[in-house]
């Protein structure tokens, strides 16, 4: 990026963040609650993209969010940690669990990885059901303390919104930097041609593990934000259906750029709200959209916009 582009980008980011700061003022409490969930999901989709840049499309991500959620809940309830501590701790614990899971997972590739990631994540999820003295079984954990920031109670959705916004902005900045760093470049090289990366001296299994751990850390942070807001956590919230929604957001947005998954999330969140009346039909709509995108727009909205942009800029230009 040259300096004028960097400046444009910085101004645009500031404008978006400024808009996000003003946003709750004109909205009712219900909408602010939706925004709180939306911010959690923004972190979630970006962190999922982080792991799939290596080409490892898996089904474990939502459970990694759950690991963060349960960690935050237990630390707040049993150890009395404040929310300042539970959020980063949830990220670290999720990264550690991801490391353990990646030991067997990194031995699988492609379809094998896809299925194995589901199996191993389900194992984690079942342990929440099985060890009910610790995790509360099917009912999960309730009465999770929420606490205060700067003397303001976080029960107020608007106050919680500002906390979530701050956490989301920090997470996105970190993920954006990682994506553009040499580590991000290597991750993308793995999805393009892992053998070639290996012949260039890249330790493929190390970088796959690292991507899964980093993505899971941010998913864990998202999980902590979620359970503090809801005040409860249970295994149902991290099941396959929820995972499929995450896949749809990311596929619709496209993983080609950092912003694709966020665009997918925004579009599908509106779609989700519009289809509230057709509750029974919703899975069908969403399944249909997933299939249509996979067939006609495999690079998602991001790929579509890029193509249109290339068409517009090449017209009248160097076109023969």
């Amino acid at each position: 990026m040259n300096t004028s582009k960097t400046l444009q980008f910085a101004l645009l980011s500031l404008a978006v963040i400024g808009g996000m700061i003003l946003l709750p003022q004109g909205l009712g409490l219900y909408s602010v609650e939706l925004l709180n969930i939306f911010l959690v999901n923004v972190i979630l989709v970006c962190s999922y993209r982080m792991t799939v840049t290596t080409g490892d499309w898996g089904l474990a991500h939502i459970v990694m969010m759950g690991v963060g959620g349960y960690s935050a809940a237990l630390l707040a309830k049993d150890a009395g940690f404040s929310i300042y501590l539970t959020i980063p701790a949830a990220g670290l614990i999720a990264a550690f669990v991801a490391y353990v899971m990646s030991l067997p997972l990194s031995r699988t590739v492609g379809f094998g990885y896809f299925i194995a990631s589901f199996a191993i994540a389900e194992l984690v999820r079942l342990s929440w059901l099985k060890f009910d003295t610790l995790f509360g079984g099917v009912r999960g954990l309730i009465n999770i303390p929420i606490g205060k920031v700067f003397g303001y109670s976080l029960f107020d959705p608007v106050i919680y919104y500002y906390l979530s916004l701050a956490v989301a902005v920090i997470c996105l900045m970190l993920m954006f930097q990682i994506d553009r760093s040499r580590i991000g470049i290597v991750w993308r090289s793995l999805s393009t041609d892992a053998d070639l990366a290996r012949s260039g001296g890249i330790n493929v299994s190390y970088y796959r593990k690292l991507a899964f751990m980093c993505g899971s850390a941010f998913a864990g942070v998202a999980g902590a934000l979620l359970v503090h807001r809801l005040g409860s956590v249970d295994p149902k919230g991290f099941d396959l259906t929820t995972m499929i929604y995450l896949v749809i957001w990311v596929v619709v947005g496209g993983t080609g750029s950092f912003w694709g998954p966020i665009a997918g999330l925004i579009v599908m969140t509106f779609f989700f709200e519009w289809t509230r009346e057709f509750l029974a039909w919703r899975p069908l709509f969403f399944g249909g959209i997933l299939i249509l995108f996979l067939i006609f727009l495999p690079n998602g909205l991001d790929g579509l916009l890029r193509k249109l942009f290339d068409k517009v800029t090449s017209r009248g230009g160097a076109k023969q």
């Binding site: 040499r182 470049i185 993308r188 090289s189 070639l196 260039g200 080609g256």
Partner: peptide
């Protein structure tokens, strides 16, 4: 030792500069 594998293999979906940086990764 550097290896230029057969078949002109490049990371097709990455930019030229990124391809070169991957080569310097270690």
């Amino acid at each position: 030792i550097a290896h230029v594998p057969e078949g002109r293999r490049v990371f097709a979906e990455m930019s030229v500069k990124e391809n070169l940086l991957v080569g310097a990764f270690q």
